[in-house]
Structure formats: structure tokens, C-alpha cells
Amino acid sequence: MPGEPKRLEHPKSVYVIGFIFKIITIAVLIGVTYQITFSHHGPGLLIPVQKKIEAQQKSAILEEVKRQEEYEKHRHFHNIVDFPSLPEASRPVCYICHSDYPHSKNKKVRALLNMHTQFFVCETCHIEEIKDTDIVYKWYNPFNENPSGPFFGTSYNQDTGNLAEVEDQFSKIAPYFRFGDNQDLAIKAQDAPLAKDYMNVRDQLTPEQRDNVKKKFHVNIKAKGHECKACHAKKGILEFKKLGFAVNRIVDLEQLNIKGMVTKYEKFYIPKLFSD
């Protein structure tokens, strides 16, 4: 452009070099600022402020829970892999109060009962039957209306003999009420309107009011679940074949694979356990 100083007419390489230097300058500035303020390798001018804010938000309960979880990792010894877990909103409503380990009363079998929560939702075992209404058991996945599997626990890996590893980590067996041709899911997730409303107002309720509301969550729920035999038997409640279980897995589930236990343990009373 005539009349304008020549210094404005730069080649493209100058723009590139200028851009790189700008990025470097910004990066250095950010690094130095962090070094001065929060880094433990510098003067840490804002660390006292940060600690003060953290101290205000400190919860003794939260800290103890985290410490215990960390300790459990060290205590356990066997390598534990982190599995994906459902987001809170998609979890069944029962988990608001009953947690991942809902069984605690029967000391002999509580861990064994909790183990089953990997395969089915609480209602599968604790559903109250409704007169003249059939209950159908199907795989339920909060992210997929028609999960097709393969589902965990339904087949063995032929090479290792271990349970086959699967991609679907969320599907569980759940009950559905059958009304004619329709099948209605018998469980509620935490994003159901009633559950959401309860979560919002539960701190404002008196203990009595809370108990009353909780009863609404327990409609069609019985305190004592099915006995083991109800499923672990031929012609049990769960139709393993229809649910996609492999033939050899069905045999194990129906008869329970207890190789070695009878002879190797000093005391063995699973049979009694079954009749409890």
C-alpha cells in the first residue's frame, strides 16, 4: 500500500515466528505465576490461602472414608481393577439408602448376598408378587433399551475356564410386570420424579415424614428376598436359557459348583444355609 511504512509488509514467516514467541511468552508467564503462587517448588505465596479454604471445607467423615478406602486397597493385596460405575441418576433408587453392599444383618451370608448385586437389581429378589400379574425377568441396561449382550456371568472362556470377559458392564437382570402385551419395568432409577423430589427435600423432612415417604419406595417390595433354591434349581424363577446363559453355565448355576468344598473344609454347612 503506498504511503504506509515498509515495516508493516512482513513475510509470512514473521507471523509464524511471532505466534510461536507469543505462545512461549504466555506459557512462561503462566508457569512463573504458578511457581510463585501455588507450586511447592517456589515461594508458594497463595498456599496458605489455599490451605485455609481447604480447612474450611474439611469434613472429618469424608476424610475418614477416604482414608479407609485407601487402607482397604493396601489391606486387600489381590489386585483390584476399577470398574466403570453407573452415574448416580441412572442407579436404582434403592442405592440412595442401601448402598452397594445392602446386606448386613445375616453375618454368615451377607457378603455372598451382596455378591449377587452384580447380576441383578434389588427387585429381582425382593419383588412382591401382584395378584393376576405376571413377572418377567429380562436384562436391563439404563443406557440401552434392548441390551443384547453378551452379559457378564453368562458363559465361560473356553481357553481359561474363567467367566468370559464382556464389554457390557452395566446390564443386570430386572423384573418387568406384564400387562397383556405390555411389559413395565418394576424398578425406579434415581432420576425418576419421585426420587428426585425426595433427594431435594429429604433434609427438610422430619424423621417420621421421611419414613412415610420411604414407604412409597417400598411398594411391592418384600423385606426377605427369595431363597437360594428359587433360582439355583431346575425350573427356577430365572429362565437362564432365555436370559442367554450358556449350557454349561446353566448346569453350574442350577446345581452350584462346589467341587472340593465338601471334603476340604473342616465344617461345611451350605446345605443348611439353603434351608434358612
Binding site: H78, I258, Y265
Partner: peptide, 29 residues
């Protein structure tokens, strides 16, 4: 003794009397 018959499932565990989470899971693979 087929301990993994039960212990291969990741949800086998409980909350103990002191409120600590106990996991008895052993990944068979």
C-alpha cells in the same frame, strides 16, 4: 477348593461392624 466360585464376583463384600468397606473380590483373570 473352588474358592473363586464366590470370590470371582466383584460385588462380594460387606460393610463391617466398624463401618469399614471390606471387599473379598479376587479377579480370576
Amino acid at each position: 477348593e473352588n474358592c473363586l466360585m464366590c470370590h470371582k464376583y466383584r460385588q462380594i463384600g460387606r460393610i463391617d461392624e466398624e463401618g469399614k468397606k471390606r471387599s473379598y473380590y479376587v479377579d480370576e483373570n
